[in-house]
Amino acid sequence: MKTVAILTLLLSLLSFDPAVVESANNGSVSFINPLNDKAVVLSNFGMRTHPILRTQKMHKGIDFKVSEGDKVYASEKGIVLFAGEKEKFGNFIMVKHSDGFVTRYAHLGRIDKELSNGSKVEKGQLLGLAGKSGQTTGPVLHFEILLDGEPQDPLKYLPHD
C-alpha cells in the first residue's frame, strides 16, 4: 500500500498538479452537495428536451432548483481552472480535482471575488451565489461532474439520504 502511495506521489510530482499531489496523502475524492443538502433536482442527467431550444439534447449535468442568492459551495477541494463568464453557462466556475475529476457550476448570479483561474479551493468553500445568468429559464444551478473529460451523472457521486 505504501508503494502505491509513493508511486502516486511521484507521478503527480512529474505532472506538476498540486491537487493530485495533495490527494496522494488524503485518498480519493468525496463530493458534497454544492448547495449544502437543501437541493431539489429540477432536471436530471441524460437526454432531454432542451427547455429553450425545444430539441432533444444530452444534458451533461443536473439542474438544482435555487433562489437567487443561494450560496454555492465547492463540492470537493481542487484548483479553479476557470472562473468567469461563458456564453450559454453565464457566470461559470470549473474546478479540477484529483483522480481525473472536474466539477462545473453554471448560471451563477455572482462568482466570489476571491476566485480566479489557479485559485485553490477547499471542500465546502463558498464559490458564489446562485442566479440565472446565461441561457436559462430562471434561477438554477447547473452542476456537472466529469471524469477524465467524460460527463458523469452527478447523483451517482453525491451523498444520498
Results as ranks from 00 to 15, higher is better:
T3I: 12
V4H: 02
A5D: 02
I6F: 07
L9E: 12
S12T: 12
L14I: 08
S15K: 11
S15R: 11
F16V: 13
F16H: 14
P18E: 15
A19S: 09
V20N: 14
V21R: 06
S23M: 03
A24V: 01
G27L: 06
V29W: 01
S30K: 02
N33Y: 01
N33V: 05
L35I: 15
K38R: 12
L42Y: 02
N44V: 00
F45Y: 11
M47G: 15
H50C: 14
L53F: 09
L53I: 12
T55F: 02
Q56M: 07
M58I: 09
I62P: 04
D63C: 04
D63H: 03
V66L: 04
S67V: 09
V72D: 08
V72A: 09
Y73A: 15
Y73T: 13
A74W: 04
K77R: 04
G78L: 07
G78W: 00
V80I: 14
A83D: 10
E87F: 07
N91W: 00
F92D: 07
F92N: 14
I93M: 04
I93R: 11
M94S: 13
M94G: 06
K96E: 03
D99Q: 09
G100N: 13
G100F: 12
G100A: 07
V102Q: 04
R104T: 11
Y105A: 01
H107I: 03
G109H: 13
G109W: 02
R110M: 11
K113A: 04
K113P: 06
L115S: 05
S116M: 08
N117Y: 02
G118C: 10
K120G: 00
E122Y: 15
Q125P: 00
L127V: 15
G128T: 10
L129D: 04
G131A: 02
G131Y: 02
K132S: 12
G134Q: 10
Q135R: 10
T136G: 09
T137Q: 01
T137H: 05
L141H: 08
L141F: 09
F143M: 07
L146V: 02
L146H: 15
L147S: 13
D148F: 07
P154K: 01
K156E: 13
P159I: 11
H160R: 05
D161T: 05
